[in-house]
Design a protein around this nucleic acid. Structure first.
Lengths: 188, 188
DNA sequence: GTCTATAGCTTGATAGAC
DNA sequence: GTCTATCAAGCTATAGAC
């Protein structure tokens, strides 16, 4: 057999960028082929289920990458310091607000039956994101109810700043979000 | 000639719903035909420029509908009362947070040349949205700089709550946004 | 594990009748 | 202003060679 033209990780990184920018319908196999350097048939060798399989793999990959980005939340040390580390990580991961959110891009569009398997799967990432923030808010002393609200609002402002930045090109609100995150979650 | 099968306004309403749910790539001419009751050729009679023409018409239509929704901001009367009226209007327009934002749905995806004509056009709606909030914040006594930041953050939280609601099905953050809007913009 | 070649379908778009 | 019929191009997916 010929050697792998592209490593698993490089492959997933290229696919993630593409799906984030184009969404599910927008990302055609021709684009995928071009972005990865693999011909159609090679893509089907790696992802027997086709395009949907690829999108689900991107979702799995993003979930695990996100865990790394959020990892400092669950480490030892000062709460605010941990949150600030995560704010920095997210800034790096989203190129200071210039990249779109995969959850947003892949949750547009429904099947004829009104469902969207990828969106259902990707909603778990969103919930895990909120849940991580919720835990750190609890650690900072918030009540169960308050912690949930603080976490949801922090994620809301994160997602919103990426939408606004994509539309207007202005990343100011993302940067304000980064600065504000520790205060939002700890309430002080 | 046969009579119009569907009025201009009904047509635009159906198209807006479709593009909001499916995005540009996701909304196929087959779906458009089904949603409007018009065959392909009839659509091309009304929109000679094809699908892109339709999307631009939806953008224009949404811009004028949005002006109506935001109109109370520019009327006479108590500032907070006017803002609360707009919060109610937006709740109605977005079905209490259950509908997606057109700006979000249509700003996913780029042409090969890196541009996206529809997204560029629709960015103007986003800017007008922010600008309306900015004016009312000024009217409430905020400095130019503060008014801009308050307006941006209000729109950020609005867009974010729609993304989170679409993903998780939870409209709680949208309802909190409605309650909070007057305080956010006036700073009190 | 990669490729070329191809199948079969859907897409966006058009011609021309009524 | 609507329609049927049709088109080329692009789509996802597969078969089979190396």
């Amino acid at each position: 057999m010929p050697p792998e033209k592209i490593s698993e990780r490089e492959l997933m990184l290229a696919l993630t960028i593409l799906f984030r920018e184009q969404g599910f319908e927008g990302a055609t196999l021709s684009m995928i082929s071009k972005a990865t350097g693999l011909k159609r048939a090679s893509l089907y060798h790696r992802f027997p289920g086709g395009k949907q399989d690829i999108a689900l793999a991107v979702t799995d990959f993003t979930e695990s990458e996100f865990k790394k980005v959020l990892a400092p939340l669950h480490e030892a040390g000062n709460v605010k310091t941990r949150i600030r580390k995560v704010a920095r990580n997210l800034g790096e991961y989203y190129d200071d607000g210039r990249r779109s959110c995969l959850v947003d891009a892949l949750s547009v569009g429904k099947e004829a039956d009104g469902r969207n398997i990828i969106a259902e799967r990707i909603a778990e990432i969103m919930e895990a994101f909120i849940s991580s923030f919720e835990q750190i808010a609890r650690a900072a002393g918030a009540s169960a109810k308050d912690a949930r609200i603080r976490a949801e609002d922090a994620v809301v402002r994160f997602e919103g700043s990426l939408v606004v930045a994509r539309s207007t090109g202005d990343t100011g609100s993302f940067k304000r979000w980064q600065k504000d995150l520790a205060r939002m979650l700890t309430g002080t």
